[in-house]
Every structure is written in structure tokens, then in C-alpha cells.
Measured scan of single mutants.
Amino acid sequence: MFKRLMMVALLVIAPLSAATAADQTNPYKLMDEAAQKTFDRLKNEQPQIRANPDYLRTIVDQELLPYVQVKYAGALVLGQYYKSATPAQREAYFAAFREYLKQAYGQALAMYHGQTYQIAPEQPLGDKTIVPIRVTIIDPNGRPPVRLDFQWRKNSQTGNWQAYDMIAEGVSMITTKQNEWGTLLRTKGIDGLTAQLKSISQQKITLEEKK
């Protein structure tokens, strides 16, 4: 169930391209415009997507990853294993993690069937560096609404905000991946996880038929 919630949630996290980005210092504006741009692209490019579902990787690479804190999220997933990894191991892992996100997020976007969304009203940021933004996803086919909290983090150097995690039903996506990959990290280390991520990233994206 959580895996499905995570995939549905990713439908609204794909941010804007650099040329049309919203105010990078306001995570609420980023979330709002990102959702609108993403849904528009999914709707307008269905012919290309249906002809070649792996085209979704391109959308992810162009529109999402430049505005997601990939390395920060990847380091959180590694936890204690990050500090013990060599620079070469980290570089290989982050490259594999990025390719994994292209496949995983692309597969999530393949679930698009006309969903709509509501974003919580903007709250004062103050001096906060981590801000959760509640998004409610509404399914046109009558499924119950899904309420999610996207975690946005302020870059201490640039002042810009980027998304790095999502919490559904009190469970963090980062925590879920830590639990899912924990045994592999304990037995085969970061190299074993890197190899698995490379394998997963090679899987073809498949479209979910409308139910």
C-alpha cells in the first residue's frame, strides 16, 4: 500500500525546468507551479508516452532531478554507511541512485490517469530550513484521497528550496528505503546496493492501464 502511495505522490513532485522555475526561495510556489507544469506535460505528451513509456525517463531527467536534492536524499538512505564509504564508492552510488530515480519516478508518472491535487495554504517560513507541505491527491475514479507531506529543505548556501522526502501515513519514503535496503547494505555494503540500483534502473517502464 505504501509503495502505491509513494508512486501516486511522485506525480506531483516533478519540479519546473530552470527556464520557467518559480521563486526558488518559496517552496509553496515551487510546489504549486511544479504540480501544474507536471500535470500539463503528462496530459499533453501522452502520444509520446504511450508510444514509448521510457520517454518518461527524459521527462524526469529534464523536469524533476535538477530540483530534487538527489545527493542529500541518497546520503540519508545510506545512513551510517555513508561515512564509511570511499569517495569513489559515493560517486558510483550517487550515479546509480540518480539512474534509479529516473526509472522509479518514471514508473510513478506512468500512473497518471487524470488525477488532480490540492496544496495546503502557504504558511510563514520564518527562519525554518525544513518545511512540510501537505498535498491532497484526488483520484477521478473514486479512490479515497491521498494526503501527503512533502519535505522541502532550504539550501544554506543559495537560499533555494528543494524537495527531498515524502511522508505518507506517518511513514517517510527515506525511512522506507532504509528499511528495504538495510539488509543488503549490511551483507554486501554500498557496492552491493550500487549494483542492485544499476540493475533496477535497467527495467523498462510500463504503463498502468486505467481501472
Rank of each mutant, 00 (worst) to 15 (best):
A195K: 10
A85W: 04
A14I: 11
K71Y: 05
P144M: 06
Y72P: 01
P66Y: 09
T20K: 10
A168S: 00
G159I: 10
P121W: 09
A14D: 05
A195H: 13
M111R: 04
Y67V: 07
V171W: 01
L65D: 03
L11K: 01
L30V: 05
G106L: 03
A163E: 02
I205A: 02
Q123M: 08
A19W: 03
S199M: 12
Q89N: 07
A120T: 13
G79W: 00
K188Q: 07
L5T: 02
T25D: 09
K198G: 09
I133L: 07
G79S: 05
T58H: 08
T176E: 01
L185E: 05
K71G: 04
T38M: 14
V8M: 15
G114N: 07
L5E: 01
K43G: 14
I138L: 11
M173I: 03
V131M: 09
D40T: 13
G126M: 08
T116P: 15
K29A: 14
K37M: 09
K128D: 03
Y82V: 02
I138H: 11
Q123P: 11
Q115E: 01
M31K: 02
Y82D: 02
A120I: 14
V146R: 08
Q89L: 08
Q162P: 11
S84Q: 10
M6P: 00
R134N: 04
I119T: 08
T129H: 10
L76A: 01
R134Q: 01
A75I: 00
Q36I: 13
K43N: 07
E208M: 15
G79D: 02
A96M: 14
E45T: 11
N44V: 14
Q118C: 10
P124N: 09
R143S: 11
E122A: 02
V171N: 05
L184W: 07
I190D: 03
T129G: 10
T20F: 10
A110H: 15
L10S: 05
A35F: 04
Q62R: 09
A104T: 05
Q151W: 05
W161C: 00
T25W: 10
P124E: 13
G170W: 01
F97C: 06
A110T: 15
M7F: 13
N160L: 07
L207C: 15
R41E: 05
K43L: 07
T194M: 07
D32E: 08
Y112C: 02
D127S: 07
N155C: 01
Y55R: 07
R147S: 11
T20H: 08
R41I: 02
A35M: 15
G114V: 06
L56P: 08
M173R: 01
A195M: 14
L10C: 04
P144W: 07
T183Y: 06
A51V: 09
T206G: 13
E99V: 15
Q157C: 06
T86D: 10
K71F: 03
A34R: 03
A92P: 10
T20L: 13
D54W: 06
D54N: 15
S199H: 09
E209K: 13
A120F: 11
P66A: 06
L5H: 01
P124R: 13
S156N: 03
L56K: 04
Y67M: 03
R143W: 03
Q157W: 08
L109S: 00
A88W: 09
A85F: 05
L101K: 03
D40C: 12
P66W: 05
P27M: 06
T183E: 09
A108T: 11
D32M: 10
L16G: 08
L207E: 13
Y72W: 03
T206R: 11
S199P: 08
P124Y: 12
G182P: 15
T187N: 06
P53T: 10
V146E: 13
P132Y: 10
A19C: 08
T194G: 08
V146Q: 06
P47M: 10
K198L: 08
I137C: 00
D149R: 04
P87H: 11
L207N: 15
A51Q: 14
A108Q: 11
Q151C: 03
T20Y: 13
Q62P: 04
I119W: 13
W181S: 05
V131P: 09
A108E: 04
Q36W: 06
